[in-house]
Amino acid sequence: MTSTDTGHTYRLNVNGSDRVVDGSWLGESLLYVLRERLGLPGTKNACEQGECGACSVLIDGVLVCSCLELAAAAVGTDIVTVEGIGNAGPTDGNGLTDVQRAFVTEGAVQCGFCTPGLIVAVHDLLDDNPEPSRSETHEALAGHLCRCTGYGRIEAAVEHVIEIRRD
């Protein structure tokens, strides 16, 4: 990277708003741009190699690792981060979606670092498949690492949402 190569400007559509990315180097990942240039720190940075799932976002409705997306090549797509995950559906008095609420009530949040990625992924899973079997849930969430819960509480949160949505 040369010093003359950092002044690029482009626009991204994030959570329904048109955002200007300023002063960037074009090799930056979407994860970096969300956190460091657009002030959206909900998307977490842990591994930067697609192994941990903490940076998961939706691009055009598809679950991806934002660390593996070149931000400048996401121009023209619709990006949804954890900050915008409640925009499309109902939320409670605290602005929490059913998935977020279930994570709280089931104790699926401990240190909380993996939570934003999991929230996005669980919305994606259940919007597509409202009644996943246990093994479908495991397969869908296998790209997320959680070092606190042992995953049981997370699985309970998913089961909880399945139940509430059934009624």
């Binding site: 090799g27 930067e48 190699q49 697609g50 660390c67 593996l68 997306e69």
Partner: peptide, 27 residues
Amino acid sequence: ILAGGTDAMVEINYEHRRPASVVSLRR
């Protein structure tokens, strides 16, 4: 060339690759 980016972006993130230009296949 950038397709899914699941190999290429890891190299870029870890500075194993410093492309002067990228051609994205997204569109």
